[in-house]
């Protein structure tokens, strides 16, 4: 049970935050370029999913899985996007991401007037709380 890394984007595609916990392989590019590439792919998948779906896609794109890892995607109605890479065995990541939005992002970014909206998150408190949140979760599912 492992959580590898997280990306948070705002609705304009600005990378708000990204961090790694257990990442064994690096992409070999700057984190800025990587974030851009990630956002581009998500944007394409999202429009692909909504166009190709034979039924009305109520919730759209949720996750994809490879042989090694799973990428989970959660978008709030305000367009803030949370992307969590985990191993393939982990369950209920949607609930986790919703909880993360509610208890960490809203509490420590939205309600912190020092954090400008649409700018990368600098708040140490947020980083600490996010780290605690993820580590606590990793422990509880072991």
């Amino acid at each position: 049970m492992t959580i590898y890394n997280i990306y948070i984007f705002d609705r304009m595609g600005t990378i708000l935050y990204q961090t790694n916990w257990n990442r064994l392989k690096q992409s070999g590019m700057s984190s800025e370029e990587e974030a851009k590439l990630m956002y581009g792919m998500l944007f394409s998948i999202k429009s692909f999913v909504s166009k190709i779906s034979p039924l009305d896609p109520k919730r759209g794109f949720l996750c994809y899985k490879t042989s090694k890892y799973a990428l989970h995607y959660y978008e709030s109605l305000t367009g803030v996007k949370f992307i969590l890479n985990t191993d393939t065995t982990i369950k209920n990541v949607r609930d986790l991401l919703h909880q993360l939005y509610k208890e960490i992002y809203v509490e420590y970014v939205v309600k912190n007037t020092e954090c400008e909206m649409g700018q990368p998150i600098e708040s140490e408190l947020f980083k600490l709380k996010l780290d605690q949140f993820i580590k606590q979760h990793m422990k509880s599912i072991q």
Binding site: T78, K102, Y105, V106, K111, M117
Partner: peptide, 11 residues
């Protein structure tokens, strides 16, 4: 408003 809506949605 732009912040309050996040709180509303989360709650």
């Amino acid at each position: 408003g732009v912040r309050l809506v996040e709180d509303f949605l989360a709650r």
